[in-house]
Nucleic acid binder design. Structure first.
Lengths: 201, 201
DNA sequence: GGTTATTATCTATAAAAGTAGATCGACACT
DNA sequence: AGTGTCGATCTACTTTTATAGATAATAACC
């Protein structure tokens, strides 16, 4: 297979995984059959340009042709955009974590948790704040916050609350074992700093 | 057809034209049949990724996927790379023109030209120096220079010399009618400045 | 007018993508 | 053990690309 075609397949798979989508998820969103996505990502088909454009669009990517002489500069732009995005998501996730922990601490007396369970949840949130987090990670944190708010307002749905805490534990386990370019937890901004310098364009 | 696929077709055609290649030329270099190149450039086929990679490679382009959020920055890089390349080619072309005119002026007494013809050639060279010129344009100028050198050394091949001057006239006619983003001859660097700040990486 | 070059269009054929599923092995969870 | 999810592989069929030319329309040149 041509050099370049393999790279495209790798970029597609990485982008899908970065969005925490399975092949079946991507199939549902893009309309391309899961079995075909599997072949595409393995480089087992020489896909059509329109199919590439469609999948790329679903993954917030754009197919383009750049002069060979501009490739290093373009790769640098792409890398720094990814890093900026990662940094931004991590900073936003820190805010989400802070909000969640404050709400838990403020309402600890009325939450259906033993002191041991409470300490464990707080420990998990503190640990999470030391890892780079992604947009899908943030969704898990936000979902737990919403479930907590709902519980605090109607004192119902204990199972949902327990499930939300379980998902947080899952998240902590996943990010702790996530492959990383550096060993151990990465230095991120000090936990729980709050600033408003982020724009969502 | 999907937005994006049309753009790719347009980029391919523009890149081919920028290199002064015909569809037959590109076919010979790339191995893709001319009739198929015609369909591709018209957007009449949904070509395979491997075919796109192959054509792009022949045109010194690389197929890549960039995050949608990075597209404006990437387009800016591509534009400035093209401008730098254009500017560089134009500056190098000025040198070629200068060298050619000096050689003609220095040897005007032994060239088989009437005073009127000589003045016309010099006029054409001066006019050319006011236009943005491309790499293929430079090849025409360099070819004329070589033919002139050959003639000066063996005093033969009058037809080739006349043909070389004719090609220069053709070039002058083409660039004078070339579509441009601004009206009239574009301001380029002052004619015949000589500096050695160009690197060919 | 004749010739040449370029791009577009046509025919016929072979190969492969794309589709629609089903199914399998591996893994995780209850 | 049973169940669900994931990615990979399989079957069968339809549609399209890619190829190899040939040819036509247009434009430019002599």
């Amino acid at each position: 297979m041509l050099l370049g075609v393999d790279r495209i397949a790798t970029i597609l798979r990485n982008a899908r995984e970065k969005k925490s989508l399975s092949q079946r998820d991507l199939s549902a969103v893009s309309g391309v059959p899961q079995s075909h996505i599997s072949k595409i990502e393995k480089g087992a088909v020489d896909l059509r340009l329109s199919s590439l454009v469609e999948l790329a669009r679903t993954l917030d990517l754009e197919v383009t042709l750049v002069p060979r002489s501009a490739v290093p500069a373009v790769q640098s732009i792409v890398r720094s955009t990814a890093q900026a995005s990662d940094g931004k998501q991590t900073r936003l996730a820190l805010k989400d974590l802070h909000r969640l922990e404050q709400t838990i601490t403020r309402n600890s007396s009325v939450l259906p948790l033993t002191p041991k369970e409470l300490a464990e949840v707080q420990q998990q949130l503190r640990l999470l704040s030391h890892f780079p987090l992604s947009e899908p990670d943030r969704k898990t944190i936000q979902s737990a916050y919403k479930t907590l708010q709902t519980h605090l307002s109607d004192h119902k749905n204990l199972n949902a609350l327990r499930q939300a805490f379980a998902h947080l534990k899952d998240l902590r386990n996943r990010v702790a074992h996530r492959p990383s370019t550096v060993s151990g937890p990465q230095p991120v901004r000090p936990a729980y700093t709050l600033d408003e310098d982020d724009d969502d364009a």
